[in-house]
Simulated assay, not measured.
Amino acid sequence: MSSPEVPTRGPARPLPYVISGILLVIAIVLPLMVPIYARSEPALGGIPFFYWYQMLWVLIDSALLWICYALIVREDRRRRAAVRRPEVDE
């Protein structure tokens, strides 16, 4: 059982959250910068650049989101384990 005084997680390290935030900004902002890919050349298999570039970002974004998820889950597990460890003050 948990009471309000007993923490369920240890202290957070900011680095995994900062890295995840940066990756999310990249995943959101770059596909929104339409002027950098609003052209038809180079075509890939007859598909204009405008379309295949967007589809490429679907794959890139899924990879970036997986990395963010893995970082946050690993940090959460570390924080939970920090609370479960018995403290030795002897």
Rank of each mutant, 00 (worst) to 15 (best):
E75R: 01
I72E: 10
P7H: 05
I36C: 01
E75N: 03
Y37L: 04
P14M: 10
Y69P: 00
Y51W: 14
D89N: 09
P7E: 09
I60Q: 00
S3Q: 07
R39C: 11
P31E: 12
L64V: 03
F49S: 10
L32A: 15
V58G: 01
Y69S: 02
R78C: 07
D61E: 07
R77T: 03
V18N: 00
R84S: 09
V29G: 08
I67F: 11
P11I: 00
L32D: 14
D61L: 02
E75Y: 04
V58K: 00
L32W: 15
A81L: 10
T8M: 06
R80V: 11
E90H: 08
D89L: 14
W52E: 04
I22T: 13
S62F: 10
L44M: 13
I67L: 12
I19C: 06
G46M: 13
P16T: 01
S20Q: 02
V58S: 00
A82S: 10
R84W: 06
L24V: 10
L44G: 03
W66H: 02
S3T: 14
P35Q: 05
P7R: 07
G45K: 11
I72L: 15
A81H: 09
L30I: 15
L32R: 14
L30A: 07
R78M: 05
R77F: 03
D61N: 12
W66K: 06
Y17K: 00
S62H: 01
I36L: 08
L65E: 05
P42G: 07
W52S: 07
L56W: 04
L24T: 13
F49G: 09
L32Q: 12
V58F: 07
A70C: 05
S3G: 15
R79N: 05
T8S: 06
W66E: 06
